[in-house]
């Protein structure tokens, strides 16, 4: 993936040394300053977190529960497992629904119909709604259907709603990038529209869909606000083990630990940040691998 720096300098360099006007030089320097500042901030943040986390980055972080009585042994076990449960449930709800909705809108829907236009406009707006609103929505929904707040399912519903518009939009982009000739060829050979979508369009769009979906899930993984509103727990000493089990997630646990007075909690918060960062990097790496592995140019 090209960094901002590469993107910024490439066109300037391509012009060669002959066209180095003072203005372009100033612009180039300004860009470099901006990039350096951004990266430096990130590096300092990472390094200080890592230094704080260092004494606590051991097996105990993964096998111990949070402990109020002995903060020096507190671990993120419940939060890690809770995060996996919530993200898993979110993925199961949001991915099939999101992809199906995108296929309908892109391949089957008549864009002139008023209801399709309404969906279109709303989708764009929903993608920009603050996360906390989805938490409130889910809290209301849970109350209506009699679901207890603060369980894995409620958290997953909130996060699924949050990332659904993102998945739909990225999936539509991926489907749109499949050349029309592929569809026309398939249809000309006698395939039905459903067969065309299922056997030609969808497989060709997989890299884009997978990338968008995984990035959306990464966003859900780092989200704390809607879950806090739903009564995500901060202290549990058991493994969440089902959709109706209480849960905590890494961001919630980090938020709670970081606000505690004991320095041991702040250290373990830093360690949990590193774990969360690791999980996010892993997911983003997976997205890149899938994209590179299956990408195809026409």
């Amino acid at each position: 993936m090209a960094t901002i720096g590469q993107l910024a300098t490439r066109p300037l360099k391509a012009q060669g040394n002959s066209e180095k006007s003072p203005a372009s030089m100033v612009f180039l320097v300004a860009l470099w300053v901006a990039v350096t500042f951004a990266i430096l901030t990130l590096v300092i943040l990472l390094v200080t977190s890592f230094m704080d986390a260092l004494p606590r980055l051991d097996g105990g972080l993964f096998t111990n529960y949070s402990s109020q009585v002995s903060p020096e042994t507190a671990g993120a076990r419940a939060a890690i497992i809770g995060s996996l449960w919530v993200i898993g449930a979110t993925a199961i709800m949001a991915i099939p629904l999101g992809i199906a909705a995108a296929i309908y809108l892109e391949e089957f829907a008549n864009p002139v119909r008023w209801y399709n236009r309404l969906i279109e406009v709303n989708l764009q707006n929903l993608a920009a709604v603050p996360a906390i609103v989805y938490g409130m929505l889910t809290a209301g929904l849970a109350l209506t259907i009699g679901l207890r707040r603060g369980v894995v399912l409620a958290g997953a519903i909130a996060l699924a709603l949050l990332i659904l518009p993102v998945i739909i939009i990225t999936t539509r982009e991926a489907l749109r990038s499949v050349p029309a000739e592929i569809r026309q060829g398939s249809l000309a050979l006698g395939a039905t529209q459903l067969q065309t979508v299922w056997r030609q369009t969808l497989p060709s769009a997989v890299p884009g869909i997978a990338t968008g979906t995984i990035l959306a899930l990464s966003r859900a993984l780092g989200e704390a606000a809607p879950l806090l509103l739903l009564g995500g727990l901060v202290f549990i000493r058991y493994d969440p083990d089902g959709l109706f089990s209480g849960f905590t997630t890494l961001p919630i646990q980090i938020f709670n630990w970081a606000g505690q007075p004991q320095v041991e909690f702040q250290e373990v918060a830093a360690a949990a940040i590193i774990v969360l960062l690791g999980m996010l990097l892993l997911m983003n790496a997976l997205a890149i691998v899938i994209r590179n592995r299956f990408q195809r140019r026409w």
């Binding site: 993200i87 449930a89 493994d239």
Partner: peptide
Amino acid sequence: LRRAAVPATLFIALGLTACGGGNE
């Protein structure tokens, strides 16, 4: 491979949820 990727993505997601359990 490309065909396999759709269910594979879902499967990874499913697999994540299975990591809970145990230890009761």
